[in-house]
Design a protein around this nucleic acid. Sequence first.
RNA 1: GUGGGCGUAGUGUAGCGGUUAACACGUCAGGUUGUGGCCCUGAAGAUCGAGGGUUCGACUCCCUCCGUCCACCCCA
Length: 429
Amino acid sequence: MPEQQNYRAPRGVADILPDDQTLWTAVKSTAIYTARQFGYQQIDTPVFEHTSLFRRGVGDETDIVQKEMYSFEDLGGDSLTLRPEGTAPVCRSYIEHGMHNLPQPVRLFYIAPMFRYDRPQAGRFRQHHQFGCEAIGDPSPNIDAEIIEIGLRYITALGLSDVTVRINSIGDPATRTSYADDLRNHYAKYANDLPKVDRDRLNRAPLRLLDSKEPATRKLSADAPKSLDYLSDNARNHWEALLTLLDGMKIAYPNFNYHIDHTLVRGLDYYNRTVFEFEPSTEGSQTSLFGGGRYDPLIGILGGNDTPGVGFGSGIERIILEIQRQESLEIDVPPLNAVMVHVGDNATNRASSLAAELRNQGISVLMAPAGKSMRAQMRYANRANANYAIILGNREIEQGVAAVKPLQFEGDQNLVTLDAQSIAKSIAE
RNA sequence: GUGGGCGUAGUGUAGCGGUUAACACGUCAGGUUGUGGCCCUGAAGAUCGAGGGUUCGACUCCCUCCGUCCACCCCA
């Protein structure tokens, strides 16, 4: 006996099994449909990119780059990284393919796997899938509102309710720096009271203290300076225009409500101005369904001409968990028209060619396992949830007929002339 | 990286310091003469996560490791 390893999927990654596929397909179809309703076009970028794309784009100091990337060296010595997020690759593609020559803004969407080395837990995986939309080349608040509206329409189409939109503006890079300084000073006054985790973050990422879960820090956050008070005139106008547009959304989306959240900052360096998240009012922690915002600096950082952008990513696994929790979506399993039951060599041979002809007629046909008893094949047919069994035995072959038996409703089986058209017709009725 | 819960057939569970580890669902085969669903019978399928220890004896007690789930960090 050789050493035998029992293989299982690596930690944090999962098979999407047949039973789950109908729901997955429904969610992905809804995503595609919704994005197209807004004129977004699909793009697929490679699963891996040069590591430096993410170091530059996402930011060297971010957690993603610091500790969550699946990076490897290929045989040619290049450092590559499995995509941890979708925005930087899409922007890379925008630059590489000269999309600034297309009518602006360029509206793109993707449905793609993302990879992050992280401890798995509920709603968090090392491979997960995101539906994301990016609008590149338009600085107006209208496009921010559009991005948020896509998210709204998507979750509405999926039947999800009780989803809260949190929104904030973190200003532009210049004001953000002075804001960060003031924030640092605010907390520094009480540095001794801060828990260790937050003291460590004080210098590195002061904005992150705002959404700390440490009670001591939260207390201090109550009267911490707010990013909205630091906006430049332009950023303020942008922000107020966006809020007006969002208020207007309440007509078309009566359940829509947003909350301005001063503690909402985001962990990726490229964001400026608008940031937002969608989250359900569920217990639990890893529940954020969407995350997004404006990333005007990014294209420039990646070597393109200064070009504004805004977008979101949403986790499909989390959306599915939420759909299941809310039981918000009825899924119809696509029906199978017929199972071919065939006993005896003559019948078995004829069954294959008949099934092929039936498929030409648009009938889906599942072959029952050859060489098994009729009872076994009928049981198989039953479990397959097919609408009809098409039964071929020696008797039928001799008479030039097929027995067509309904499986999903009461009714007698009929003998039908043994040709594809007649059988297809009897099944279509 | 840190903390907690859990690890018994494909799945969900039961079990007890002591001879063949149980049940349900599922799978496979049957219930006579070629026909599913319900019912009945039978079969296959578990080194009781791994290693070590305590004991006359451990699936059952202890330790270590691994895995998994949940939480922190962070994010989708």
